[in-house]
Design a protein around this nucleic acid. Structure first.
Length: 315
DNA sequence: GCCCAGGAGAAGG
DNA sequence: CCTTCTCATGGG
């Protein structure tokens, strides 16, 4: 790895093939809300001249208190981090051990709709995010829209999270880490409402208190099987079937989870049903049809219906 | 003004 | 088990 003069101590450039890792798709497919696109060109960006390939786009963000900037060229993903953080954290966070080509093949063999969706969404990776952050984020998501969810999360982070400088001299600096459980547990419901949480204020307040007090031990819940984990999550105020599925998929890596929201319901109905199917029927069908790959399938379908320019998909 | 947004919870069948 | 109603808030 090249060591340039302005590099921080102990950091290295990590270079990964981009054929199944697309930053824009991964960060904009609805599983996360806090990674931010950095406007190019970044004048002091060593990645631009480092490998000779122009940077297409760059993202910055914070996960579990660790800041990172990633760059995408036509062929590669680049990131500047320590070897220890890459091996011990980011590799797991970006699900780098999983063979997405095999997943695309497996899902694509099931039916032509999924074959198209998986090809269209090629490059999406399912992140393994902090369960606490996902809990708060998806409690907020109920009967809400994505721009407003982002706005509320951003306010909570700015007001109650730790300020961090990600990247000297870039437009992404500064950013704020997601607030800790104890920071949010100290708030009155009214504080959540000021951030735009609306009637979900008491759900956030009570769930934060349960996590901060240890009544709900999100880390220990990794030992539970899928059924027990879902039950534990649903015991928290503001968490129902759909939100529990999101937390299981986006932080606990439970790939049999299949969150059914209004968008996925619409997509599933167009592609797989000839009658008006309820949430439960759609979910049951999807988990049976996609099996252990249901979570990946859900993200391909969600990305498809949110980003593909066409009125409807006809069987 | 109406309708919708990555729904959950409560009430009443 | 099911269905229906309400919840706060901003944008189209």
């Amino acid at each position: 790895m090249n060591q340039t003069g302005r590099q921080k101590a102990n950091t290295v450039w990590i270079e990964l093939p981009a054929d199944h890792f697309d930053l824009e798709k991964t960060f904009e497919c609805g599983q996360c809300f806090r990674w931010k696109k950095i406007d190019l060109p970044i004048t002091s960006d060593p990645a631009s001249s480092h490998h000779g390939n122009p940077v297409i786009h760059a993202y910055g963000g914070i996960a579990s208190g660790k800041g990172l900037v990633l760059y995408q060229t036509e062929r590669d993903i680049l990131m500047e981090t320590t070897h220890q953080d890459f091996e011990g954290f980011w590799s797991h966070y970006f699900d780098l051990m999983t063979d997405y080509e095999a997943i695309e093949k497996r899902l694509g063999g099931l039916d032509p709709v999924m074959a198209d969706a998986a090809e269209f969404g090629r490059g999406i990776r399912i992140l393994r995010q902090d369960p606490w952050e996902m809990l708060i984020t998806f409690i907020l998501s109920g009967n809400n829209n994505i721009p407003r969810i982002k706005g509320t999360i951003e306010k909570l982070s700015e007001w109650y999270g730790e300020k961090m400088t990600l990247h000297e001299g870039s437009t992404v600096s500064p950013m704020w880490a997601f607030p800790t459980p104890s920071a949010l547990a100290a708030l009155d419901p009214e504080a959540f409402r000021k951030a735009g949480a609306g009637y979900r204020d008491r759900y956030l307040h009570e769930s934060a208190q349960r996590v901060a007090s240890g009544t709900a031990d999100l880390d220990a819940w990794t030992a539970l099987d899928d059924h027990e984990l879902r039950k534990a999550l649903i015991s928290l105020p503001g968490v129902g079937e759909k939100v529990a599925d999101c937390i299981m998929l986006f932080s606990y890596g439970r790939m049999s989870a299949f969150p059914v929201d209004t968008w996925v319901k619409r997509m599933m109905h167009q592609a797989y049903f000839d009658h008006e199917a309820g949430l439960k029927e759609i979910g049951d069908f999807a988990r049976q049809h996609f099996g252990g790959f249901a979570g990946y399938a859900q993200q391909y379908l969600f990305y498809w219906i949110r980003n593909r320019k066409m009125e409807a998909y006809v069987k």
